[in-house]
């Protein structure tokens, strides 16, 4: 049995160790956000954060994740209390069908956690592994910029208060 730390909770997993994280999240833990898109690491719909890095959950077997910190979109906020990145996507209405969005948000979140001052260019470069078919790219970029601004303000705010 594998034990995973997901969104701050320790979870015991029954699935065999070779099972990709995606199927454990969806099938065993009933977490909806990570999506099956290709199973090949080509589209980014399954992206989650492991130890601060955005990874494809569809090709990452759970046996590699014991003891590591996993964050899914559910860990960033809820419909009642969305996190800053989620708020930004809502504010920009940055979705059409929305299927690719959880993966986009997770990669953007990992980037901004690492580099709150990420430039537009580095945001685009970072999102290169991700596909959106509805053509929502302009909004997605706007939403990430908005989140970056908000997160910067918050950091600045915290600094001045200190």
């Amino acid at each position: 049995m594998t034990t995973l730390t997901i969104n701050g909770e320790s979870r015991s997993i029954k699935a065999s160790p070779d099972t990709p994280l995606l199927y454990v999240l969806r099938d065993e833990l009933a977490l909806n956000a990570a999506k099956y898109g290709c199973g090949l690491g080509q589209c980014g719909a399954c992206t989650v954060i492991v130890d601060g890095k955005a990874i494809f959950s569809c090709i990452t077997p759970v046996m590699l994740l014991e003891g590591r910190t996993i964050t899914t979109l559910e860990g960033l906020g809820s419909p009642d209390a969305p996190g800053p990145m989620q708020r930004a996507f809502l504010a920009e209405q940055a979705a059409q069908c929305g299927y690719c969005i959880p993966g986009m948000i997770m990669r953007a979140q990992a980037l901004l956690n690492r580099d709150p001052h990420a430039t537009d260019e580095s945001i685009k470069g970072e999102l290169q592994p991700h596909l959106c078919r509805c053509g929502t790219h302009m909004r997605i970029l706007r939403a990430i910029r908005r989140a970056a601004e908000e997160m910067k303000l918050k950091t600045a705010d915290a600094r001045t208060r200190r």
Partner: peptide
């Protein structure tokens, strides 16, 4: 490589 990559998109 990824540093030059992100430069490239600009």
């Amino acid at each position: 490589d990824s540093a030059t990559k992100s430069k490239r998109f600009g």
